[in-house]
């Protein structure tokens, strides 16, 4: 939301000094009243540089994506539940969510566009700016950060020359990489971790992460530690929408890691087990008496 703004600029926008004398014609936000309230005296957001607007692309959603959308909607008892997978589907088609994408989803679900954009802006993974061929997400929550995640994120910023949610290279072209820092990825025992197109790269170092993005920029696709062979952001979004190429290679791609298996491995080495279950499952309790 606040991308591209400095810490001090944000402070100025969001936390005005409540004791400062109000200058006539200005709001406490520092904007002039006409700019803030609009000519007709109605609130407007146009002046807010930190609120990105949806792009208008004029894209046409083809029959294939419409057929997929129908399939998504059919999964749920109430069609509005399909809004999240449909937004993933839009991203698989466009590489981000445009105003046209919002309208497409709203039309399918018979809801207002504002309802769909309200959902879209709530979740991190729906992007309003075109994403690169790959999206690199670095965990900078406490545990990963303590183990080196901060250093990795900073190194990738300078390597790619971009900030949070910005893209090195032309989005959509081969080798383009969008960088972001994210909150806990539930891989804390593998920290520091990052993901590329939501596939996991465990136990990263500054060097391994920099080499990884250099390879991505060259058009290579290194294999994740856990997860399927890399494709691209759009393909990942298609899978999130629920279209799994039931390709055994993807499902059977590695998921095991020393960390995940540590307890099981140690128990196996030491011969530790849970007590055996009874040969025959015990009888069920009687039905509760009707009150």
């Amino acid at each position: 939301m606040t991308r591209g703004m400095t810490e001090s600029a944000k402070t100025a926008v969001h936390y005005p000094d409540p004791n400062a004398a109000m200058v006539a014609g200005q709001t406490s936000f520092g904007a002039t009243t006409t700019a803030f309230w609009g000519e007709g005296g109605r609130p407007t957001l146009e002046h807010r540089a930190d609120v990105p607007q949806y792009r208008v692309t004029g894209v046409t959603f083809d029959d294939d994506v419409r057929a997929k959308a129908a399939e998504v909607i059919a999964r749920y008892p109430h069609k509005r539940s399909a809004v999240m997978p449909l937004l993933h589907l839009v991203q698989s088609f466009e590489g981000f969510v445009s105003k046209d994408g919002i309208a497409f989803v709203a039309g399918l679900l018979d809801v207002q566009e504002s309802e769909v954009s309200g959902v879209s802006t709530f979740y991190n993974m729906y992007k309003r700016e075109p994403v690169g061929e790959h999206i690199v997400s670095v965990c900078t929550n406490t545990m990963c950060a303590a183990l080196g995640g901060d250093a990795i994120y900073q190194a990738l910023r300078s390597e790619l020359g971009v900030d949070h949610e910005q893209t090195a290279g032309e989005p959509g072209t081969p080798g383009s990489v969008t960088l972001e820092h994210v909150e806990c990825l539930a891989c804390c025992d593998h920290g520091p971790v990052l993901t590329v197109n939501y596939e996991i790269f465990d136990n990263q170092t500054v060097q391994s992460a920099v080499e990884l993005v250099q390879a991505l920029r060259r058009g290579e696709r290194p294999h994740p530690t856990r997860g399927a062979a890399l494709t691209d952001f759009r393909h990942a979004e298609l899978e999130l929408a629920g279209f799994l190429d039931d390709d055994a290679a993807e499902v059977d791609a590695p998921s095991a890691s020393p960390q995940s298996l540590r307890g099981a491995q140690l128990a196996s080495e030491r011969g530790w087990t849970a007590p055996a279950m009874p040969e025959v499952p015990p009888a069920f309790p009687p039905l509760p008496e009707k009150k």
């Binding site: 993933h88 939501y198 996991i200 997860g227 791609a253």
Partner: peptide, 20 residues
């Protein structure tokens, strides 16, 4: 007669395995 497994989106492999 209807069950939804809601899985976080930022990691695809578990979603893929559960759906499979």
């Amino acid at each position: 007669h209807y069950c939804v497994i809601y899985i976080r989106g930022e990691l695809i492999h578990p979603i893929r395995r559960v759906r499979s």
